[in-house]
Design a protein around this nucleic acid. Structure first.
Lengths: 340, 340
DNA sequence: TATTTTTAGTTAAACGATTAACGAAATGAA
DNA sequence: TTCATTTCGTTAATCGTTTAACTAAAAATA
């Protein structure tokens, strides 16, 4: 049988209320009594029942974490790292994180995760781009939710986001400082806020340094944001004989595809074209040359989301807060000063 | 305020006990009353509190899922797929799965996952190879645990395992049927039960078909089981001028490394050397040529573990049961009939 | 008809915590 | 000395379920 608060109370010769008060650091209990209780707790290896506690406190102690199947199963451990950050930070407040996936194509037929309908969580964290329908359905439940790395096009929410604009600026400025003026940008799925923001950063950097924005240097027509799109985008640039000495890809996958194309066409990286990516995925280091990129601190994103969740849970009146997690330029070998 | 069983009882004009009995399909309740109660439940959208339920039933409804950090963050979504299977199957019995990671080097300083010490789970699933120390610590708690894809060297446990021996046989027999007689085996980390079993399967297949086992065709000295090890193993074979027309690698990573070496040395795959791997990882398809392999159903492993957990939970007296999940040969382009 | 059995439901205790309200003893103020 | 405060704990209600034990009415049996 499990050790309960009653056993502790009996052993320490006090009431269960006293034990509970000790557990909650209530100063109404004298130092000696406190010690006695603590001793009993320790000797019996007492662990409060989360169930009983939750029942009276009206909270489950659980946080739901929702990902689309695609995102969870991605080869690149992006969202898994974010989850890990959340799970890690959850330990600080004794929360548990219930991870579940939803179909990438979430339709009317699909039901919400069980932890939502059963109200088995105190709050929900949604990571990555999810269908609008999911969000609409979630709203019906009186539970706070927080987005990570995605901000729905309409509505006002709490969210933990990558500082994409700044990242886009830093990436572009890095190239500018190396002397580049003809800097191409390749992106895809421009509806995605993150991608779009990186693009904005690119434009802002150009403006700041007095470099004219040239639309022929920009590819935003790709559907996807994978390696193939990157390859395709750069090839189309090359096919049209457009000259550029540097290239900023909206993410590393596209950057890697881009490099593949450049290599195929016999262009030397970084001597003839410098390349900067965004994300800092694992395979960057194994590229030839290793890819210079903007590092996104995945773990931190998860941590920040959990912290924000705690704030929201503690004080419901708070307005929707956004946290921008800073990014960092990681210098590797795919960029170099402009050669004449 | 949350809708409780009391609200339902009031609305249906019965006692809370009746509602509870209806919820549990007790036949003591007449059809009409039952209908009335069900109607009330539906109209109020009543959802029983898992907390209250768990408190009286003395079960949490949670299952803990433990992975080492390395395994969770692996680029190849192997363990994540297993987890997904467990999470999926958990829905059947309204369980929640609490996923957590432990340091890959789990030492005395590291504490067990909180859900263990706090007894917030009814059972524990451990996936992949974990330090023996973890297992020893886990034993102190009166909780059933089940291993997936790993069986500790000592002790007797419930486990869901890949049918490695059979897989090893199938892979080898496939090569034999193609006419190959000089079949090399490359493996690493031979202490790992899975690897060792695949090796056993290899030997059994040879014996079954009357092919003499030749130790010079076998490399078991590699420390790791990655791409580099595969490359190194095959190179060392080639360096010693050992002839073989086919190769069975203990996993796909090593197989891919092996192919890299073969390609470097100018050997054609599959014309000069046929290669079979094991695991069926995502990148197999992108190899040149695509890798023939033994497919491991990751999702199923997770499902089986959850099912087994339910059995264990329902009937504690049951002896430790092992489930062997069948594997399947996946024909791609890296094997072909022996050419004279 | 009287008695037993079955049916259909209720009552109330229990699960293991938290906490408002209360109270006895010690301390302080008048 | 008397009354008010403070200190240190306790009592008891509560959270939302489940279920053993009970009961009243109906049905079956004698």
């Amino acid at each position: 049988m499990r050790v309960t608060i009653k056993d502790v109370a009996r052993k320490a010769g006090v009431s269960t209320a006293t034990v509970s008060l000790v557990l909650h650091d209530n100063r109404r209990i004298s130092v000696e009594t406190r010690k006695r209780v603590l001793k009993a707790i320790h000797e019996l290896e007492y662990q409060p029942s989360q169930l009983a506690r939750g029942l009276v406190m009206k909270q489950t102690g659980n946080i739901g974490f929702i990902l689309t199947e695609d995102h969870f199963l991605r080869t690149e451990p992006f969202y898994t790292r974010i989850f890990l950050g959340t799970e890690f930070e959850a330990r600080e407040s004794s929360h548990f994180v219930l991870l579940t996936t939803i179909p990438t194509q979430f339709t009317e037929e699909n039901s919400l995760p069980r932890f939502v309908t059963q109200q088995s969580v105190d709050g929900i964290i949604v990571a990555g781009k999810v269908p609008q329908l999911l969000i609409e359905k979630l709203k019906h439940y009186n539970m706070p939710f927080i987005f990570i790395d995605y901000y729905p096009p309409k509505g006002d929410y709490s969210a933990v986001l990558i500082d994409n604009i700044h990242g886009g600026m830093v990436a572009t400025e890095h190239l500018i400082k190396l002397g580049h003026k003809e800097i191409a940008f390749i992106g895809g799925d421009m509806e995605h806020p993150s991608i779009n923001e990186r693009y904005i950063g690119y434009k802002m950097a150009l403006e700041k340094h007095g470099i004219r924005y040239r639309s022929e240097l920009v590819i935003t027509s790709e559907e996807a944001t994978g390696k193939e799109s990157g390859l395709h985008a750069v090839c189309s640039l090359l096919d049209r004989d457009i000259k550029f000495s540097a290239l900023f890809a909206c993410n590393d996958a596209m950057a890697i595809g881009a490099m593949e194309c450049l290599r195929k066409r016999g262009l030397k990286i970084p001597d003839q074209v410098s390349v900067v990516g965004f994300d800092d995925i694992e395979s960057d280091v194994f590229q030839d040359p290793p890819l210079t990129t903007i590092a996104v601190p995945k773990f931190d994103l998860g941590i920040e989301a959990m912290r924000l969740m705690r704030e929201v849970l503690a004080n419901k009146v708070r307005k929707n807060k956004k946290v921008l997690v800073p990014v960092e330029l990681v210098l590797r070998k795919s960029t170099s000063p402009l050669k004449k």
